[in-house]
Design a protein around this nucleic acid. Sequence first.
DNA 1: CGACCAGTTTGATATATATCAAGATTCATG
DNA 2: CATGAATCTTGATATATATCAAACTGGTCG
Lengths: 258, 258
Amino acid sequence: MTNIRRDSPSLLPKADNVQQLVSNSRLKIACSNCNLRELCLPVNLSMGEARLLDEISQLKRSYGRGDYLYRSGDKFQSLYAIHRGSFKTQVLHEDGREQVTGFQMIGEIIGLDAICTDHHACDAVALENSEVCELPFNKLEALSRELPSLQRHLHKIMSREIVRDQNVMLLLGSMRAEERLAVFLISLSQRFAARGLSPTQFHLRMSRQEIGSYLGLKLETVSRAFSHFQSNGLISVHTRSIDLIDLPSLRAFVGKQQ
Amino acid sequence: MTNIRRDSPSLLPKADNVQQLVSNSRLKIACSNCNLRELCLPVNLSMGEARLLDEISQLKRSYGRGDYLYRSGDKFQSLYAIHRGSFKTQVLHEDGREQVTGFQMIGEIIGLDAICTDHHACDAVALENSEVCELPFNKLEALSRELPSLQRHLHKIMSREIVRDQNVMLLLGSMRAEERLAVFLISLSQRFAARGLSPTQFHLRMSRQEIGSYLGLKLETVSRAFSHFQSNGLISVHTRSIDLIDLPSLRAFVGKQQ
DNA sequence: CGACCAGTTTGATATATATCAAGATTCATG
DNA sequence: CATGAATCTTGATATATATCAAACTGGTCG
């Protein structure tokens, strides 16, 4: 709440990411003070321990829709905690094909893909006006050697990402188009609920094409599935405004399809 | 090489996994001595540091084809390093659908999915006679607080798993059947090569149905794709024996399909 | 050795989703 | 407020893969 804006020219983003130069701003933010404490990194930390985290995450950057937080191939420096807004991550194949691998929202940590090679393995793109807290990974590792509960939390975050990805594999590998969309909507619903937002009424931040890429479908198929759910009274859609009218039936729909 | 067989009845596997009672044996194994040092955990460790690892990974267990290393829902205790043989991991949906999420081979670490909830999120099943080194996670975490290079290595292993999964998503979400199989074969080839085995001639440890589950295809489609590659002179298949006759063309095939 | 059984191959047909195309709606901008 | 561009919806058709079915293969075991 009491974030202090500041400028630190010595920490300008890399020159190859020109958009960032325009849209980035920097803000001091204190983990010990942040209203995302439950969602984000500092769990089970004493106030004193949380202040140690403050030391390493004082930079906040903002991005506009379409801005890249990082690109595939960028040198790895930091993880990012999403403080406001949302992002998509996508992997690109040489031949130009792209696959959206996830949508990330407030309180989620992004950038874990880069640890293994020291270079990012995917792009992260803002879906709306967004802010992230930068967490220099070296400092995070050093601190997690001191604070076992932070260490465990970091491990849990990475493990959760693995489990999530495996569930997407299940979805892509064995579900039909409408089931995939139902699972997607239910998952969004849960994530909004976990953030104190409505689990039934929300605004999609991504296009039909982006949803389709994530779900392994063409945008027309996504659109048809939305329309079909609507005509069955399961949901109400107006472009990107969603109302999950009959969430139980939507849940029951998944798996019913043999 | 100088592993000493021993029995420790007090450490019998859990009673709900009867098969293990039959097929498990326990062997002392020393990381500092292991010929998998490069592939597995102990990287960049001094001899003294590697001996610390010995302390936590002295149990080796064996499994026969079809045995479960762990099941979805099992309480999380340990990670496992595959010392010999191979495993598959699979997630099961309530409705009975299953999806193979990966095939793991010698030197790879398995069980990372369980950290986030303290319970395993998938099954791990031996594909052949196999041995694993058990790595109690609490001890591994404690040691990695002392040894920064072990800590970093653990992070890299988890990150690598995330990247791998994202590449499977790309495969499942945007590639055609034959491309998926080509990617699968190329990936196996690379992994065999990294272990000093032939990158072109190998024996598949999994059935057509398991390959199909992993690739989001039916077994008949997998079989047809094998036959088609063979009739094009890219590979030679005899049931589970594979010879990648023209690996460059196989690589070029991926992506050619728009 | 022979019979069986699980796994594999191959063929014919069905079907879900992609593709192509045209309008309709929403959004950004001057 | 009007214009154009992007996004979304819907329809007609094409196509890749699933499904169903039958024959073949290889290994196991009495």
